[in-house]
């Protein structure tokens, strides 16, 4: 059963330099200039089944973030259809809802609610979240007194306790100290074993090869290759190396 299905999806962004202000809008209308569209994704089709773990690889600007935005329901495609079933938690820029003046505890409550926890779930999960993060007694201190590692640990702990059906991990495992990284990987492995779907994003493919048996390689908005991660990553690495040499 596919939990994520993209069929011939294209997503374009209108280049609107200067059109964000009233003057820009007026000039555009008066000149009647044609829209210049930048296609971030072009005719992308794939399916991800329940319980699959897929790595999304590609250089900066390949369209990875746009694709994740579509999966997360943050944007609508311009062509084609996207269908996603199940609860989704995206570790996109961990802690984007965090605020420095709030304490760790208040931030956990706020972020949990943002990720979709109900009041009852929050009550049940709170202690587990704090335990996992290892923040300890700092939980009642304002977040601005935390080290960046502590913030990331707390943010990851909230996201993983949301118990999503689909988890998106975006370049975030490179943070935190080694013991915390090991804890995260262990938690993600447990998440995979219980039949949930995982999407990892990285421009350092070796980092995700162990987690994901399948990889999709994006370049300039198109799917270049989709298959077993060892093969895809080998080809990707060769192309990258060739590009660096020339």
């Amino acid at each position: 059963m596919a939990v994520i299905r993209f069929s011939e999806v294209s997503k374009g962004f209108v280049r609107h330099t200067g059109r964000r202000l009233l003057g820009g809008h007026l000039v555009h209308r008066l000149r009647n200039s044609a829209k210049e569209v930048f296609w971030a994704l072009r005719d992308v089709s794939f399916e991800i089944g329940k319980g699959e773990s897929v790595a999304l690889i590609g250089a900066n600007g390949a369209g990875k973030s746009t694709l994740l935005g579509l999966v997360a329901g943050l944007a609508d495609p311009d062509k084609g259809t996207v269908s996603v079933t199940g609860r989704l938690a995206a570790l996109l820029e961990l802690g984007s809802g965090f605020h420095g003046d709030l304490t760790g505890r208040e931030n956990v409550y706020l972020n949990g609610a943002l990720l979709g926890l109900s009041r009852g779930e929050m009550k049940r999960q709170f202690d587990r979240i704090v335990d996992f993060s290892g923040v300890g007694e700092f939980i009642d201190e304002p977040l601005r007194t935390y080290s960046s590692g502590m913030i990331v640990r707390l943010a990851f702990s909230v996201a993983i306790q949301v118990e999503p059906d689909i988890l998106i991990v975006d370049e975030v495992l490179a943070v935190g100290d080694q013991s915390f990284q090991a804890k995260c990987l262990e938690r993600i492995a447990a998440f995979q074993r219980s039949g949930n779907t995982l999407i990892c994003v990285s421009h350092v493919p070796s980092a995700v090869q162990d987690l994901c048996p399948r990889a999709i390689w994006l370049d300039h908005g198109r799917v270049v290759k989709d298959g077993p991660s060892a093969n895809v990553i080998e080809d990707y690495t060769q192309v990258r190396l060739a590009a660096v040499r020339s």
């Binding site: 329901g73 996603v84 989704l88 609610a113 943002l114 990720l115 979709g116 926890l117 109900s118 929050m122």
Partner: peptide
């Protein structure tokens, strides 16, 4: 899709 508790979020 977001399937959370909108009232709880608003409260927070």
């Amino acid at each position: 899709m977001w399937r959370g508790d909108a009232i709880y979020l608003l409260h927070n």
